[in-house]
């Protein structure tokens, strides 16, 4: 352990602001990329659902005229 106490650890020998700022910003950037990937999957899910719903609707509409014509 390079530090005597937790307070000293936070101070980083007077450089605490710089060290923690750089770690915090780096974390933000990387978390942003990870979050964007996770949200991307949600967006894809929504797209896929719309796509399937449209497909079902189209299938239904194609069925009904067929019935009418047989009548």
């Amino acid at each position: 352990m390079a530090f005597e106490s937790f307070g000293e650890f936070l101070q980083m020998g007077g450089y605490g602001f710089y060290v923690w700022l750089s770690f915090f910003l780096s974390f933000l950037v990387i978390a942003g990329v990870a979050l964007d990937a996770a949200l991307g999957r949600r967006r894809l899910q929504r797209q896929s659902q719309t796509l399937q719903r449209r497909k079902r609707r189209l299938a239904k509409r194609q069925q009904s005229p067929v019935k009418e014509s047989t009548r």
């Binding site: 390079a2 980083m12 020998g13 007077g14 450089y15 605490g16 710089y18 060290v19 750089s22 770690f23 780096s26």
Partner: peptide, 10 residues
């Protein structure tokens, strides 16, 4: 001093 610790991400 301790400022070099940024190296571990930089």
């Amino acid at each position: 001093g301790d400022s070099y610790r940024i190296i571990y991400i930089h």
